[in-house]
Design a binder for these strands. Structure first.
Lengths: 221, 221
DNA sequence: TAAATAGTGTCTTTTAGACAGTATCCT
DNA sequence: AGGATACTGTCTAAAAGACACTATTTA
């Protein structure tokens, strides 16, 4: 065996102004010092209990964000992706509402649209694309998009999130049938969102059981 | 950063006598010398171009099997899973037909049913369960099960493979509609499989494009 | 009361499944 | 001929989608 560099990188995604955005941070050391990159860091064998724990620690240290929805994505590896040598990065992706970034997060985080192909160091472009692709794919048949919403939301809002991620308009009746089938939401009694000159919409929240655990559908939306 | 042990483990799965089996090898060195375990090994930064390449190399070295369908599964990590220290194993799973194991593979491979909870070293039990769960899940909506069949097969044979993996009987007409929709098979002209006192079944094979690349369905089977 | 969006009932279209028929082998 | 399984045509059932109607707000 030879020396291998072990890191975690985190693709922190959020929805802002109808666009999917990723959180970037200016690197404070070489290589690529001063360049915007995905938050990442070395695994600390003396304090991390596993790579997920390392990812949560790095995310907290670099962005100030605590325990969002976070899932392992894939490993990215090779002799050339990091100029320091043969490396493995175990990439994770995390989903938060824009509110969380706005309040809890460090002010030097840059939110950038995932579609604008700004140049990224290492193979972070490839990691980002994999994360977005995974998010879009899982949105087809799971409760994943809920983690991009705030604590409470209306069904029309949630439908717009799903439609944005899936890239297609959804039938309102079918969408609501599926959401009911998933049985993951609870209406907040007496709470409505008034947004203009029309009937207010019922506010919902995720049932407690589904705050950290995905709900899946047999057939997609 | 501290020293971290980087390895790959491979869950090599095959279908034999109507049972899903995993390939185990007696370990030839400490720790757990002499114990049956998943084939695995260190990443070699001087020869491997990435972890997938390391997995293919380890699989070839330890089992003699070359370039099957192989996909990254997940990373398993922590301070205690390997007695030598804090380690990351990037687990992969591979699918082959029993023929391949029977001919190309080393004779000291042990095929064990994935359901029989024989004791496994490290966290190999957990890796195995994740692999089987991934296989079953992907079988719902992809061509993955095809990689467990031989080069040629009949539709009734393929349907039995899918039914075994999905754990439920499938409607014959619907199954064939979906297979047709996937458009991944080609009938071998004039070739039939005679298996008893009844009409022989048309033999099929995977179209060349799909030998290494999965085909996905919008809605599952 | 007009306009706008929320929420629901119901009909139509699409997709999946049941069933039964024909096809083709072996004994 | 009879039994067995392959394959296919067609009807039925279930799911998804279209459409329209009611509900409730502001201007």
């Amino acid at each position: 065996m030879n020396q291998i560099i072990c890191t975690v990188d985190i693709v922190l995604l959020t929805l802002h102004e109808g666009v999917l955005k990723v959180a970037l941070l200016k690197r404070d050391r070489e290589p690529f010092k001063g360049v915007n990159a995905l938050p990442g860091g070395f695994i600390h064998s003396n304090e991390d209990s596993d790579v997920q724990d390392a990812a949560l620690r790095v995310l907290k240290e670099k962005t100030g964000i605590d325990a969002p929805y976070l899932e392992q994505l894939a490993s990215f590896s090779g002799p050339a992706r990091d100029p320091r040598g043969w490396s493995v990065s175990i990439a994770h992706y995390a989903l938060v509402s824009f509110d969380v970034i706005n309040s809890a997060a460090h002010p030097d985080i840059k939110l950038v649209s995932v579609d604008r192909p700004s140049s990224l160091p290492f193979d972070h472009r490839s990691i980002l694309e994999t994360a977005v692709s995974r998010l879009r794919s899982k949105s087809q048949y799971s409760s994943l998009p809920c983690y991009l919403t705030g604590e409470t939301f209306t069904l029309p809002q949630l439908q717009r999130v799903y439609e944005f991620l899936m890239g297609e308009a959804l039938n309102k009746v079918s969408f609501r049938r599926k959401i009911t089938e998933m049985d993951m939401l609870e209406a907040i009694p007496g709470q409505f969102e008034t947004a203009g000159a029309h009937r207010p919409a019922q506010l919902y929240r995720l049932k407690k059981i589904f705050r950290q655990q995905l709900q899946l559908l047999d057939r997609g939306l």
